[in-house]
Structure formats: structure tokens, C-alpha cells
Simulated scan of single mutants.
Amino acid sequence: MDRLILQKAASYCAYQERTQDEVKQRLKKWDVWGDEADEIIAELISMNYLSEERFAKTYAGGKFRMKNWGRMKIKQELHRRGLSDYSIAKGMGEIGDEVYLTGLKELLQKKKDLLSRTETDVFKLKQKLARFALGKGYESELVWKTIGEMEDFNN
């Protein structure tokens, strides 16, 4: 195994959390594949530079806090990145139910304040809010329940 490549790969992983797929792609760019690539990935895991569980936790928590993504979008993205169901479940555990619901309420309220300047039809406003939250990856049932509980719609 090439120590220089291992060192480069370790730096690549130390900079930010990575998935095994991302590291494999990077190794291919460096003309490393097959058994050698697998060896390097195994070494990175044993040295704790690479952890899919840690990646899932960081990714899920970050996307929820920074981009206000819902659980469905986060799960879909983690699946797309080739993570195991176990790692995805661990990542999703980073988002508590209360914080999640509060985040959705705040997201909908901000959007409602923005949209209600131009949209006067309550039915259309609710539709736009729902479409927005669904696009962010929130669950349909939860979105509609939260919109139904919002003030100003219940007068």
C-alpha cells in the first residue's frame, strides 16, 4: 500500500466527514482502485478517519439545522450516497422530535409571513406553504397538521 496515497486520503477525510463512496471516487482520480483502494479504505476506517455512522450524524444534523431539510429529504440523500440503513438510522437519531416540529413551525411561519404580503387567498396560501415544506422534505401528514394548527388560519 502506498503510504503517500494513504496520507493524502487521510488528509482528505480529516478536512470533512466523507462516505466510503466519496473516498473511492477520490482514489480513482489518483489512479488507485481495486484491492489497493479497499486496503486504503480499511486502513482509514481502522485509523478512525472514515466513519459512515459519524458522516450520517454530521450530515443529518447539519442539513436539518442549516438548510431546514426534513427527514425524508435527508434520508433520501443519505441513501443516494450509499450509506447502510444502520448508519442512516443513527444519523436520523440526531434530529429530535420536538426540535423537528419546532423547526417545521418556524419554517412555515417565516414563509407564511413572506407569502401573505402578496397572496390574499387563504386556500392558495396554504397550498403554497405545503408545497414549500414538502419540497424541503417534510412529511405530508405533519405539514398539513402544522398548517392546520397555525394561527391566522383559524379565525
Rank of each mutant, 00 (worst) to 15 (best):
M1S: 02
R3L: 10
L4W: 15
I5Y: 02
L6W: 06
Q7K: 15
Q7W: 07
A9K: 10
A10H: 14
S11Q: 02
S11F: 11
Y12A: 11
Q16H: 13
E22W: 06
E22H: 07
V23S: 11
V23A: 12
Q25R: 15
Q25T: 15
R26V: 07
R26F: 09
L27P: 01
D31I: 05
D31V: 13
W33N: 05
W33P: 01
G34K: 00
G34S: 09
D35M: 14
A37I: 01
D38F: 09
D38P: 00
D38V: 04
I40P: 02
I40F: 10
I41D: 08
A42R: 08
A42D: 04
E43C: 08
E43H: 07
L44K: 11
L44D: 00
L44I: 01
I45G: 11
M47W: 05
N48F: 12
L50N: 08
E53I: 05
E53W: 05
R54A: 08
R54W: 10
A56G: 00
K57D: 04
T58P: 03
T58H: 06
A60T: 06
G61K: 03
K63R: 10
R65M: 04
R65I: 08
M66N: 13
K67M: 09
N68Q: 08
G70V: 06
G70N: 05
R71V: 11
M72A: 07
M72Q: 08
K73N: 00
Q76G: 11
Q76M: 09
H79M: 12
R81P: 09
S84T: 02
S84Y: 01
S87V: 01
I88H: 06
K90Q: 00
G91H: 03
M92S: 07
M92A: 05
G93P: 06
G93H: 02
I95C: 04
I95F: 01
G96I: 07
G96Q: 09
G96M: 12
G96C: 07
D97Q: 02
E98G: 00
V99S: 13
Y100N: 08
Y100A: 07
K105R: 12
K105Q: 14
E106H: 08
L107K: 00
L107H: 01
L108C: 03
Q109W: 04
K110E: 13
D113G: 09
L115F: 14
L115E: 05
R117W: 14
R117M: 15
E119A: 13
T120S: 14
K124M: 15
K126E: 10
K126W: 14
K126C: 00
K128F: 14
K128H: 15
L129T: 04
L129K: 11
A130Y: 03
F132K: 01
F132C: 04
L134Q: 04
G137N: 03
Y138F: 11
E139V: 05
L142E: 02
L142W: 03
W144N: 05
T146C: 07
T146V: 03
I147Y: 13
G148A: 06
G148Y: 08
M150Y: 11
M150D: 04
D152L: 14
F153I: 09
F153M: 13
